[in-house]
Design a binder for these strands. Structure first.
Lengths: 244, 244
DNA sequence: TTTGCAATGTGTAAAAAGTACACAAACAAA
DNA sequence: TTTGTTTGTGTACTTTTTACACATTGCAAA
C-alpha cells in the first residue's frame, strides 16, 4: 500500500552542537562486491529516504528524522531542492543504487531539510549503530552530491542563525552564556568579546536568567539561562536597515 | 524524445518594479465547459511548466522564463519547493488539469523560482497576450496553491533584499536615487528619510554616480547612478552582529 | 587548611552609526 | 515671468558598537 515515489527523496542535514564543535549526523555506507569481495562503496551519506505516495514532503522529512534519531518535534526546515541530472551518476553511487531492494528513477530530485538538535539528546550509537556525529570542520568523504547539500545547509544555517533565534535549538534547555557564545562563534567562525556579548544578550528579554548555577565544575559556577520563544514572539522588533 | 516528468514542475514568481508598484507576472487561465459553455475556470496562475526528462531544475526554470518573457540572463533563484499532496485538488484545478494535452501525476512537486526583472524590458502584451503584470498589492484570484507560492516568494524577496544588493535587478541600468529609494520602500513597506537614505547610499561605493542627468522632466533633473557588482564583490564587508 | 587553577561576571570611555529635521536650486509648463 | 514639482544638501542629538582588565567563585591538589 505504501509505495515509494521513484524520483523523489528527502535528505536531512542534522546539525548538533557539542561543547566545541558543530557536528552533523552521517550514515556509514559500505558495499562489498558479491563476487570479488572487493569494497565497492565505503563512505558516508546524509540521512534521507524516498517519499511515499500520498505523503507530504515535511512528513517524509520528519519520518526520516524519527527513524534515525528517535526524536519528534525537533527543528526542521526545508532549505533547498537538488535536482541536477548528474547527481547520482558517479560509479560508486550507481553500484550502491543497484544494491537497493527497491527501484528508483534515473533522475531523482531530493528536497533538502535542515534539522537542529541538542546533540546530548541523540546518542546514535545505541539504537542506530550505523549513524555517527561527525564534526563539520573535519568531514569524511560523502556519497552522491551530499557534500554539496551539506555546504548549502551550512550556508543557510549561518545566514539564518543571525536573523532568528534558532541557535538555541542546538543548546540544552538550560545553558550558560559561555555555551551560547561558543555556539555562535562555532557556527559563524568568529569570536565575540565576552563583555560585549553579554551586554548584547542582556538586552534580549527572551534570554532569561534562572536561579540556578552549574554544579561540580572546578571553577566559579556559571548561571543558567533559558530561551523563551513566547517572550521572543511578543518582544521582537524588526530593525529595517539596508544591507545590515 | 523530450518527455515531461509527470510529477515535477517549476513555477516562476517574476517580480518587476514599475515606478510605484511591485508587480508580478501572471498568466490568465480560462476554461469553458464544452457541453454547457459554462466558465469552469477563470483566474490567474504563476508562470510554470513541467520539467523535461534529462533536464536540470535551473534549466527548466530558465526555459519557462524565456518562453514567457523572451529574456535570458535574468536574476533567478530557487527559493522553495511545494509538495503537499493537496496542492492540486481544488475542483477548478482538476478541471483545468483534465483539459491539458499531456498527462500529469496526481501528486506534483513544484520547485519555486524567484525572478527579478527590470519591468520596462518586459512588455508582455506584444508577444504573450495572456501574460500580465499585476500589482502585488492588489492581486486577482490565483489557481492551484499559487497564492501560497507567491507569499513565500515575497517573504524571501523581503528578507534577501536587505542582505544582498539584488534590488538593483528591478531597476533600469541607470537609475536615480529616488527610484532606488522608492523600490526599497515599496518592497519593504516602509519609508526612509530622504537625507538619511542618501547618506547611507553615499557610503556604498558600488552605487556610482554618473555624469548624466534626467532629461525632459518638469522639475530639477536628478543625477543618474549605476550599480557595480564588481565593486560590490571587492568591497563587501560582512557585519556580523547577532539578530541584526 | 591552604594554595593554585580555571572560568565567571562586571563598567567605562571613545568611535561609529542612526535619527530627526528645512530650504534653496533647477527645470518645464503655463 | 510665474508656478509647480522634485532635487540635493548639513547639523545636532541619540543610540549602538567597540576596545579593554581584574576581582570573585568553587573545586582540586598539595
Amino acid at each position: 500500500m505504501n509505495k515509494l515515489i521513484p524520483n523523489l527523496s528527502v535528505d536531512c542535514v542534522v546539525f548538533g552542537f557539542d561543547k566545541q564543535n558543530l557536528n552533523v549526523l552521517l550514515k556509514k555506507r559500505q558495499l562489498k562486491s558479491a563476487e570479488t569481495g572487493e569494497m565497492l562503496v565505503d563512505d558516508y551519506t546524509l540521512t534521507g529516504y524516498h517519499v511515499f505516495e500520498g505523503e507530504d514532503l515535511d512528513t517524509a522529512a520528519q519520518r526520516t528524522l524519527y527513524n534515525v534519531t528517535g526524536l519528534k518535534d525537533i527543528y526542521l526546515e526545508q532549505f533547498f531542492t537538488f535536482g541536477n541530472t548528474d547527481r547520482l551518476t558517479a560509479e560508486t553511487d550507481k553500484n550502491w543504487i543497484n544494491s537497493l531492494d527497491f527501484e528508483i528513477a534515473e533522475h531523482v530530485i531530493s528536497v533538502g531539510y535542515l534539522a537542529l538538535v541538542d546533540s546530548t539528546k541523540v546518542k546514535p550509537d545505541s539504537e542506530h549503530p550505523e549513524v555517527f556525529w561527525m564534526p563539520v570542520s573535519n568531514l569524511p568523504a560523502l556519497g552522491f552530491d551530499h557534500k554539496n547539500i551539506l555546504d548549502k545547509a551550512l550556508e543557510r544555517l549561518r545566514m539564518k542563525v543571525r536573523l532568528e533565534p534558532i541557535g538555541f535549538e542546538l543548546l540544552p534547555d538550560k545553558f550558560t552564556l559561555r555555551e551560547m557564545q561558543e555556539m555562535y562563534e562555532c557556527i559563524l567562525g568568529i569570536t565575540f568579546d565576552k563583555r560585549n556579548f553579554r551586554k548584547k544578550v542582556s538586552q534580549m528579554k527572551y534570554v532569561i536568567q534562572l536561579d540556578e548555577k552549574q554544579h561540580g565544575v572546578a571553577h566559579k559556577p556559571a548561571q543558567k539561562f533559558i530561551f523563551s520563544r513566547d517572550v521572543y514572539d511578543r518582544t521582537r522588533t524588526e530593525k529595517l536597515n539596508l544591507f545590515i
